[in-house]
């Protein structure tokens, strides 16, 4: 199988660099599957899981990121990106509860949107952890 190098970088440092056969992720416009040799592409990602398929499959929870594709290299730039083993489940659960409470309280719009994003991030993290098990 042809492979493509995937690197995931965040402001806190690189998270992963390895070769994979396919990258499957959720862009703002819908699901994207990237195979080796893809034309150069840039797409923003939603708060979601990125699935990397290959000999050593990986799943990564990303938030606030985008994808840059070149024929031989895929780079994911995200404000946060975590492998399942690095996710703090307890913290994510707490974040989920907090966000749910805030959503119930329904204050002004900015708070509401923030809570919504926080909830999405927390759910995404929990999903990624659970899928792995």
């Amino acid at each position: 199988m042809k492979t493509v190098t995937v690197s995931v970088v965040t402001p806190d440092g690189p998270v992963l660099e390895d070769s994979f056969e396919m990258v499957s992720c959720k862009a703002e416009s819908g699901e994207l599957g990237i195979l080796p040799g893809h034309i150069p592409l840039v797409a923003p990602l939603t708060i979601s899981a990125v699935r990397l398929k290959g000999e050593r499959p990986q799943r990564i929870a990303v938030s606030g990121g985008f994808l840059e594709v070149r024929p031989d290299k895929v780079t994911i730039l995200a404000q946060s990106a975590e492998k399942p083993e690095n996710i703090d489940v307890e913290r994510a659960r707490k974040a989920r509860e907090r966000a749910e409470r805030r959503l119930q309280a329904k204050k002004d719009e900015i708070d509401f949107r923030r809570a919504e994003f926080a909830l999405k991030r927390a759910l995404n993290r929990l999903d990624v952890v659970e899928e792995k098990r």
Binding site: E28, L41, R70, Q79
Partner: peptide
């Protein structure tokens, strides 16, 4: 390199530039 933009350039800039400034 010339990129394809998904969905389009404008939307990408909307996401990318704030991130860039934050970084």
């Amino acid at each position: 390199s010339m990129y394809e933009y998904e969905p389009n350039q404008q939307d990408i800039l909307d996401v990318l530039l704030p991130q860039y400034a934050e970084s």
